[in-house]
Amino acid sequence: MDDPLLRCENLVRRYRDRVAVAGVGFDIARGEVYGLLGPNGAGKTTTISMVAGILRPDAGSILVEGLPVTTGAGPAKQLIGLVPQDIALYPDLSAVENLQFFGRLQNLDGSRLQQRIDAVLEVVGLADRAHDRIDDYSGGMKRRANIAVGLLHQPHLLILDEPTVGVDPQSRNQILESIETLGGEGLSVLYTTHYMEEAERLCDRVGIIDAGKIVAEGTRRELVALVGAHDRVHVSVSGDAAALAARCRTIAGVIEVHQTDSRLEIVSDDAGRVLAPVVEAADVEGVAVTGVDVREPDLEAVFLHLTGKALRD
């Protein structure tokens, strides 16, 4: 990738004899949402701790806009916003007080700090509860306040470490919508999750991490293609199902067709491309289509294929 916003090369981190991250490398383009998808203990948090300048890598390098990220007080850290998995806020302080504190550590002060506090509280929908103590917030509100601190200094790269863990569905959706909006506004995002559907919804590209290594990387479709998985269209019909199956086998893009009584399973590289010709074929054969169900291979299947285990193992 030419001129990436973030470049990580061959990151290694050991905890005594255990290797938590074993040569991880990836790039993130400007405005790209990149997902690190892997089960608990795969090395996601260790990787982002190194990217955020919290942990010193045993080997490898990290550059943000060409500036090296170190564990000291280097300038690269002003380009990075971190949203840890835990609610990393003082519970005995209000959201505003927490934002003031972390804003000052990010060199914000005076009216500029106040403007940014107002702006991020608006983004996360907490403006009306700004002066409440964090420990008076619901779980979802705490999560949103946690994100607000990460956005406060207008970072170029936002790192989100499993931001929806333990969140109710409504707050979860609100958080995901906020991230979609931020990605749409050109903010680069490094997003770790073990929720496959979140990675599929938010991420432009996904790196699948397991046992401290990135085992595959690409768009969802690239990853699916990588493991040779196909889309499956299930069609329920009334009429001569065998005749329809024979006609479907002649449609371009159809790999194979399985017929069981009045039900067809059509295997294809791209379900969207073959769906219309299948319906046309049914019309030609005088077969009534009573139901259609399209199943695309997901990242769960990819992960299972690549690692031999489920994401939530």
Partner: peptide, 17 residues
């Protein structure tokens, strides 16, 4: 324990500070 230290270290603040 609350990961606030991580958040502080992710800002341009040295551990000594």
């Amino acid at each position: 324990q609350q990961k606030i230290l991580d958040r502080m270290l992710a800002t341009p603040t040295a551990a000594g500070d």
